[in-house]
Design a protein around this nucleic acid. Structure first.
Lengths: 225, 225
DNA sequence: AATAAGCGTTTCAATAAGTGAAACGCATAA
DNA sequence: TTATGCGTTTCACTTATTGAAACGCTTATT
């Protein structure tokens, strides 16, 4: 299985990514960020523009286009997993007051592994972990990393106390079909609760861990699609 | 200004759109839907796949990928317009009980003009107009069509009574910077309230119209970015 | 003022890269 | 058995992409 990829398209998608990450970017910056020559970047961005995937704002900078928003929103709504998971996230928040996340393992293309938040219910404490849908977070050293690595302890949940950031505790549980686990590449999604570490202690962690694991297991008595 | 567009990329984006609209689609269907040869479609879909824009599900069908969801969500969150508009939409719903929408003029690429819903607050009546974020609606004959056409009456709002669908009334007002209007290509966004026609009468329409126009004007005392 | 730096843009020859008809194996339908 | 349709691979043809260079232009720098 070689890499049958068309360079032109890859470059265009790379540009699209660059535009989205920056929010707004000039042609020159986009070209630099993707290591393309200015003329190539211009041509590709124009193609993306005529297709509505990017647009030029008043200052001439490139921004994410409507088509992208539309397709992304469509894709999200097709993902019934989110609908299924939201009530569970809400219950976790109700029970713990901490922010709860649904994430999937993201795009193992270039670079290290990441997870993407697909759904979020924010905690009720005024000091709480906050993030956003679509955010990409590194797996390394996080509880999600353990879960997506297929190394979830028998307890059913993984904990990362101050693993990624110095003051954050994450507790995650895998979402997978009961008979499915050894399918080669770990679970496809996970639930997690993330909170400021100072508020946690072993009992709290154990309690929340069991809640997360229970919700995760309950969720996959149901079919995804 | 000719059409400086790279065919390969255009085709790939077309394919991406086809996959998203279908939700899940086989290679052959995707190829037919875009009028590409099977081999070309396969090659491009693979490129989209390695970039995470589409993925293959268990049955081998192509589905929207995580990267797309991620970028779409990012794009949405960069659009501060949405954050600004949500409170206004909520107020409209509170005052009228009908569903309220923030939309932008979409992608004037191929075909007729459309608008895309960027944000929605659903009405409180049990019989109400319902739609979804990312939905693309035709402008023709709708109140949004009037507004985006730059033909908003002096009243500040446009009404379309049973224009698009036989039982739906839409009331829309343009979002634009005060001094900006004649910029050549009409407003970029609009607020609208949409409701079942049987519940409307001239007084209702006038009252809602004034509310929508007022919210729209209030919104653009503020800068977008 | 004069100069330099950086931007978006266009042009164009070189060739790298995408193309699609055809053929294959494998399913499932007739 | 035969036929249809799928996903896939191969390959010769050449089309379509590429990037250096050059151009106006605006904005810093001297």
């Amino acid at each position: 299985m070689a890499e049958p990829a068309t360079r032109t398209v890859e470059r265009a998608l790379q540009l699209l990514g660059a535009v989205c990450e920056a929010g707004a970017v000039s042609l020159a910056d986009a070209a630099r960020g993707t290591e393309l020559s200015a003329s190539t970047a211009l041509r590709l961005l124009r193609t993306l523009e005529t297709s509505g995937f990017v647009r030029k704002d008043a200052e001439g900078d490139y921004r994410p286009g409507l088509r992208l928003v539309q397709l992304g929103a469509q894709a999200l709504s097709h993902e019934s997993l989110i609908d299924l998971a939201l009530p569970a996230l809400q219950r976790l928040v109700d029970a713990t007051g901490e922010s709860a996340y649904l994430s999937v393992r993201g795009h193992q293309g270039t670079g290290s592994d990441h997870a993407v938040y697909l759904a979020i219910v924010e905690g009720t404490h005024s000091v709480r972990h906050a993030s956003w849908v679509g955010r990409s977070v590194p797996l390394e050293g996080s509880s999600l990393g353990v879960v997506f690595g297929g190394a979830t302890p028998e307890s059913g949940y993984a904990v990362s106390d101050r693993g990624v950031e110095a003051d954050v505790t994450g507790i995650a549980a895998p979402l997978q079909h009961p008979g499915d686990p050894g399918n080669g590449h770990g679970p496809v999604a996970a639930l997690s609760v993330v909170s400021p570490s100072y508020r946690m202690n072993p009992e709290h962690i154990a309690r929340i861990g069991e809640l997360v694991a229970a919700e995760a297991q309950a969720l996959f008595g149901v079919k995804t699609h």
